[in-house]
């Protein structure tokens, strides 16, 4: 074993810049994904059948095919289809948001269903309309219950974001491969990036715990 981290030291700033790319990518995908997932979950509990069908069909497509295939399809097929040269980051955020929405919509639906129906009835009896009832009464309670599951989903997004390296986005993973290509060292850059991913996930877990404690204030 002859590990030589000194050799990749000059490339460290290059690798570290990838943190921002990966983080921005994850945050954007999570925010868009959860927003879309919430809308989908509302369709799934709607009393209008076609809306329910649409949401279920949508979920089945994104859960039923590999994420990397969806990513390749969006990135390579979009220019061919509509003539727009989509950037790797755009393609990544777009695909991951749609994909994450499919998964989180199921979690959010379960969260909404788990809120006591008396909450809905109390809101209705006070003359509160559907939208404010959902936004102010039902969803806050639903999200509190499913926070651990949403944190899981975000962690999965953060790690799966390494897939965008396959379409050339300069994220952490891709940068490790670039450095490996330049220095002919594979072990060191991959280990460095692995540690960075791990630290990021730990940070996310900690942040989620703080958030959960704050949300449990009312218990």
């Amino acid at each position: 074993m002859n590990l030589d981290f000194g050799q990749i030291l000059p490339s460290l700033p290059f690798i570290i810049q990838g943190i921002l790319v990966t983080l921005r990518f994850t945050v954007l995908s999570a925010l868009l994904g959860f927003t879309l997932g919430t809308l989908l979950s509302l369709l799934k509990i709607s009393s209008i059948k076609p809306l329910r069908w649409f949401a279920e069909f949508y979920t089945s497509i994104f859960r039923g095919t590999p994420l990397i295939l969806q990513l390749a399809l969006v990135y390579f097929a979009t220019p061919q289809l509509i003539g727009y040269r989509i950037s790797p980051i755009e393609a990544g955020v777009f695909t991951f948001s749609l994909n994450s929405a499919a998964y989180s919509s199921e979690t959010i639906r379960a969260g909404i269903m788990a809120v006591d129906k008396g909450q809905r009835e109390a809101s209705m009896s006070l003359g509160v309309a559907y939208r404010p009832m959902m936004l102010d009464i039902i969803l806050p309670q639903a999200f509190k219950n499913i926070l651990p599951a949403l944190v899981n989903e975000t962690i999965a997004l953060l790690k799966d974001s390494a897939l965008v390296s396959t379409i050339g986005a300069l994220d952490l993973m891709r940068r490790a491969q670039v450095v490996a290509g330049q220095t002919f060292l594979y072990f060191e850059p991959l280990i460095v990036v692995g540690v960075i991913y791990y630290v990021m996930v730990m940070g996310l877990t900690q942040a989620a715990q703080v958030l959960e404690r704050r949300m449990r204030r009312s218990d």
Partner: peptide, 19 residues
């Protein structure tokens, strides 16, 4: 909604907003 604003209701299980 207008009707309900004018008719208050109290439930067996209170149904206060816990948050």
């Amino acid at each position: 909604l207008k009707v309900r604003q004018n008719v208050g209701m109290v439930f067996q299980h209170f149904n206060l907003f816990p948050h």
